[in-house]
């Protein structure tokens, strides 16, 4: 008897689907972009947005809190008065923290999205998932105008997380409600 793999592939060939017409990409591949549009779109998801010129001054509010940071966090972000939690951290330690501070790989102005890829200042995926408060630093030059532009800048084989606002659900009467399993507060610091 043929293996499931062989049989499925043979059934597909037997279906004799004719070749398709070439794909016409007539849609926009860019957009107006910019910090202002990005900030506006992030805020639409009921995330907190600050447009600032300097990270440390924006971190004042974290005083007295226990905040997770990725291993390669820039030293100037580690302001005094905050209990910084460094890796290695257990699932329980992440769960009991007050928040997490990271950078990002790319952001998307059109949709108000930030994308993490586990690269510089981001850490592994669990870091931005278990703490209830995620602060994400976005540099102006990281903001792509559109979804196509953002995908072009990303390396698909890295573990990617696209984040658009705080955790939410539309499962009760199809209305969006914020705050389910992921971080219930998303705070984005845009550095210009």
């Amino acid at each position: 008897m043929a293996s499931a793999r062989e049989e499925i592939l043979q059934r597909i060939r037997d279906a004799r689907v004719p070749a398709a017409e070439p794909v016409v990409r007539g849609y926009r591949d860019t957009g107006p972009g910019g910090v202002e549009l990005f900030a506006e779109r992030v805020a639409d998801y009921r995330a907190v947005v600050h447009v600032v010129t300097d990270v440390p001054e924006a971190l004042d509010r974290l005083r007295g809190k226990r905040i997770v940071v990725p291993p390669d966090v820039p030293a100037e972000w580690l302001v005094d008065g905050v209990e910084w939690l460094h890796e290695p951290l257990t699932i329980e330690e992440l769960d009991r923290s007050d928040g997490v501070l990271t950078g990002c790989a790319v952001a998307i102005a059109d949709t108000g999205t930030i994308v993490l890829d586990g690269g510089v200042a981001q850490g592994r995926r669990a870091l931005t998932l278990l703490p209830d408060h995620h602060l994400c630093v976005v540099r102006a030059d990281q903001i792509a105008a559109s979804v196509p532009e953002a995908l072009h800048r990303l390396e698909p084989t890295r573990p990617l997380t696209f984040i658009s606002g705080p955790s939410a659900t539309s499962d009760i009467e199809l209305n969006r409600v914020e705050g389910v399993h992921g971080p219930r507060t998303l705070e984005v610091l845009v550095i210009t």
Partner: peptide, 27 residues
């Protein structure tokens, strides 16, 4: 590259959002 089409079509069609809160990609 083909995902650029579907990541725009799907969230607006299903939950009427510019983008759904989370999209995970792993390889």
């Amino acid at each position: 590259q083909d995902l650029e089409v579907f990541l725009q079509l799907l969230p607006r069609s299903s939950t009427a959002e510019r983008m759904n809160p989370y999209t995970s990609v792993w390889t």
